[in-house]
């Protein structure tokens, strides 16, 4: 048996993933410390969600877990559940933009003006990808695309395509959940009404359930690449496929429900705060704010 330390060694080390995760955590922690100094306290849950999200995504790609996901269908499905649903969901839920921004060193921020024209194509691409219809189609479409048996087969054979598959799922997951859970009033991300967001969450559920159920209930081995390449331990292909189908079916669609509940709580909270804080101009308890220009 592998010891814990051995298990945490990457199966296929990816410098890009390691650098990106280090950068994200580094910036975030620096931003947290800066925030504490300047009075922007984040509390416990937001940093917890962000760090857990990054840690989960790192764990499923840069440890021996990745080995298991290459050689067991249901473990691969859990890997994608983390990369496309849970990890990005937690990261987006923590709304880390402000903290990450605070983490950027001042010296770098001064030079950031140079980057602006270069970032224009990225901003355009981002706006297009975040159009609600495109984002929805992309989110469900990628799941179907990579689970098309012939495409899945080649992705599991070729190291490059495997990496492309996982990157595309992770990036799309971040885009999608960022759009759904976005609470920043201004910025690049489109401001969808809560109703539309919940509609999107409802729309993505049935296709995922149908696909998951189809896989779970299929009597033939749809993804023979795992038999072809060998499984991590001896288990019947059909059992592997049934569990994999269930993972695609239930927790994946449950994420929609969880997200909808969270959106509703956002909605109520905003509603309540709008009712309980009257406009500053007619607030007798806070005369300063109405007289002092800020």
């Amino acid at each position: 048996m592998l010891s814990t330390l051995q298990f945490l060694q990457p199966w296929e080390p990816s410098l890009a993933i390691q650098l990106l995760c280090t950068l994200a955590v580094g910036l975030y922690i620096t931003g947290l410390v800066e925030g504490y100094r300047s009075g922007h306290r984040e509390g416990f849950w937001k940093p917890f969600a962000f760090l857990l999200g990054v840690a989960l995504m790192y764990f499923v790609t840069q440890t021996q877990y990745d080995y298991l996901s290459q050689y067991m269908f249901f473990i691969h499905r859990i890997q994608h559940l983390v990369l496309h649903h849970m990890g990005p969901f937690l990261i987006a839920l923590s709304a880390p933009a402000a903290v990450l921004g605070r983490g950027v060193p001042d010296s770098m921020r001064r030079h950031a003006g140079f980057l602006r024209p270069l970032l224009l194509p990225v901003r355009i691409a981002y706006r297009i990808l975040q159009q609600p219809v495109i984002a929805t189609v992309l989110f469900v479409g990628l799941i179907f695309f990579w689970l098309t048996p012939s495409i899945h087969f080649d992705a599991m054979l070729s190291a490059q395509r495997y990496a492309l598959m996982n990157w595309s799922m992770a990036v799309d997951g971040l885009l999608f959940w960022w759009l759904i859970l976005n609470r920043a009033p201004d910025g690049l991300t489109p401001q969808l009404s809560y109703g539309r967001r919940i509609l999107i969450l409802a729309v993505i559920m049935p296709p995922q359930s149908i696909l998951g159920a189809y896989i779970a209930l299929s009597r033939q081995d749809l993804f023979d690449v795992y038999a072809v390449c060998g499984r991590a331990w001896p288990v019947s292909p059909i059992v592997d496929q049934q569990i994999g189908g269930l993972v695609t079916w239930i927790p994946a669609s449950m994420m929609s429900v969880v997200a909808a509940v969270i959106l509703l709580s956002f909605m109520f909270r905003e509603h309540r705060s709008r009712r309980s804080t009257p406009m500053p101009a007619c607030s007798p308890s806070n005369p300063i704010s109405s007289t002092t220009p800020v």
């Binding site: 050689y71 054979l157 072809v228 390449c229 499984r231 331990w233």
Partner: peptide, 27 residues
């Protein structure tokens, strides 16, 4: 070699005679 060709193998639990199953690539 197996990693290069993206295949794997694994061992099942030995029975009373010490025989065990091996999962391996069929390709």
């Amino acid at each position: 070699l197996t990693k290069r060709y993206r295949i794997t193998y694994g061992y099942g639990k030995p029975d009373a005679n010490g025989d065990y199953e091996v999962s391996h690539s069929s390709a």
